[in-house]
Design a protein around this nucleic acid. Structure first.
Lengths: 342, 342
DNA sequence: CTGAAAGCGCTTACAG
DNA sequence: CTGAAAGCGCTTACAG
């Protein structure tokens, strides 16, 4: 079936294409009568303007991109991404934005695709997840002038000049809360499964250090092990920590927490009696082992929504909006020994 | 920085914009010399054609949509979707297609968005996951004439006339393999946690029935319980089955299998000694409880790749290509009692 | 093989 | 408030 054009709608309504365009775009100065006549015709014909033509004329596509850099470990194992995407799609739908998703399966593919995204004129802006620290993408985009929002804190050293807008959760507070909770339970040899792969890991570690300091517990480097956010790395890290005889562990991601949980069990120790655990990221219960982890919950979906909103502002005003940081909360579950003490 | 146009590139190379366009689009009849001159200029300037303008002129956008209908239960809890998306993005990147992702958070939003997708001219085609049976979307799209590929088998009754192209895995064979495996282990009271929410569930159930029939085991309706692919529903279904004293259970999704596993343990029974389990879908080990499920593995990522390829064919030839069905395989793990028998 | 020109379907100053 | 017209940056018959 042949698609209608502005011109044809105009004819049917007895007005010019320009007027139809003005009605569609809610331009205020159209007489009520003409406006209604046009709306009538649009409703009857089910007309929808050609988005491509509109984009070409208006130099605005209403398409935004979500770029998830190629991370070493399976992107979607971590429920963080699905949650984030839920928020982003929700806000996109609401604002009539189309979301283009970019995933990569090799660094080469990533470089190539990013390059063409930046050179093409398809996108109004970009949302980029800050999963890797050594991410050279950012300066490249800044240079191009394409509006973008980072999800997660950028490395402070990157781009001293440019104002990078980001949404984030308060990871320092999260690390602090988690550690303090373990302290409150009377634990003193509190280990951490940390990660320096991204700034989220850095900040959670900072929170851990701060909590120890504030509670006059001396820091012991032997109680720090590194992981890469995967369950397997959590398992390995915990195995490394066990000889140090910690009585608690803060795993700076739930996946690593699950790994730690297994390692503790495999060593014949009890949770939480021997070692209490606090995780991070809040895996949905369905994915968790039992008992479920006490964890720090982040409003990831909300972060996605906000990212879209900030990006919209950026696109329409071409002034980078202010970054937003969301609070986190502690969710207490049995794994920590709160309810379950024997 | 000002973007270049075909015209400007042409001037730099001493040819017309038309010739530049022909070079870019690999039109064969351009003299070697001019071609090289143009390519040189393009390389030096880093010129990339404006995709929107190209789309408007060529009536082809190279954007495809992935539509994941609003399913009652968290879309991404099931690793099926991430895997599928991996395949789809990989193939999209390879073919220089942009992938637009459409998720919905209510039926109303879904209806509204689908409508505007179909009326707009933004997409060359659609990939749609067939997660719901009662899906009225399909006839609507068929009517619109937008090329689309279904991931999963459509209901047979839908659209007797239209040729619907789909990619699928051989779910009947999967159900058969799973059940036969349990039979081979000597089990006879084999329960099934089924689901009639989609055709995948139907087919797996058919495979179960066929296997029983071929092995002369009489079907017992009391050994059938329904689930909705969630862990919780698997737990509930298993609880319903336990009084029937099954000695095995085929859970037609891994999530439901994990739920069943918990229900069995909570009832004080042993896996696999008392009840052996086979799951479906192959959750990544990281998400699985222990012991991991014996399961039917489907080539989900490959299905995504193929969906994109079929859609490309469809778009360029406007003739619906033939559907593709992938084989599945049985992955034996300890939960089934193969290795672990005491 | 190549270029001038029309056309894709909108938006938006510009006059009036 | 409204319309005629130019323009967004390509592609692609059409002539030559």
């Amino acid at each position: 079936m042949k698609r209608l054009t502005l011109n044809e709608i105009g004819k049917l309504a007895g007005v010019s294409a320009a007027t139809v365009s003005r009605v569609i775009n809610n331009y205020p100065h159209v007489t009520q009568e003409r406006r209604e006549r046009v709306q009538e015709v649009i409703a009857q014909t089910g007309f929808q303007p050609n988005l491509i033509a509109r984009s070409l004329a208006s130099q605005r596509t209403n398409i935004i991109g979500l770029v998830i850099p190629n991370v070493a470990h399976a992107v979607f194992t971590d429920p963080y991404f699905p949650n984030l995407i839920q928020g982003i799609t929700q806000a996109s739908n609401r604002r009539n934005l189309t979301l283009a998703l970019f995933l990569f399966h090799s660094m080469q593919e990533e470089t190539r695709t990013i390059q063409s995204i930046l050179n093409a004129t398809l996108l109004d802006g970009l949302i980029i997840t800050a999963d890797r620290k050594e991410y050279s993408l950012v300066p490249q985009i800044v240079k191009q002038g394409l509006p973008f929002i980072l999800v997660g804190r950028p490395e402070s050293k990157s781009e001293p000049s440019a104002e990078i807008t980001y949404v984030n959760t308060d990871n320092i507070a999260g690390g602090y809360l988690a550690t303090e909770h373990l302290i409150t339970l009377g634990r003193r040899r509190i280990a951490i499964i940390a990660s320096d792969l991204n700034t989220a890991g850095d900040d959670r570690y900072t929170g851990y250090r701060n909590a120890l300091r504030d509670h006059n517990i001396s820091f012991d480097a032997a109680l720090v092990a590194q992981g890469d956010f995967s369950l397997e790395s959590g398992y390995a890290a915990m195995q490394k920590l066990l000889p140090e005889q910690p009585d608690a562990v803060f795993a700076s991601s739930d996946n690593m927490g699950l790994g730690a949980q297994r390692a503790i069990r495999d060593a014949g120790l009890r949770i939480p009696q021997d070692i209490a655990i606090v995780g991070y990221d809040d895996l949905p219960p369905a994915m968790q082992a039992e008992p479920q982890l006490t964890t720090i919950r982040q409003p990831v979906e909300q972060m996605g929504i906000t990212a879209v909103e900030l990006l919209s502002q950026f696109v329409s005003s071409s002034i980078a909006p202010a970054s937003v940081i969301f609070p986190v909360e502690l969710i207490i579950r049995a794994s920590c020994g709160a309810e379950q003490s024997g």
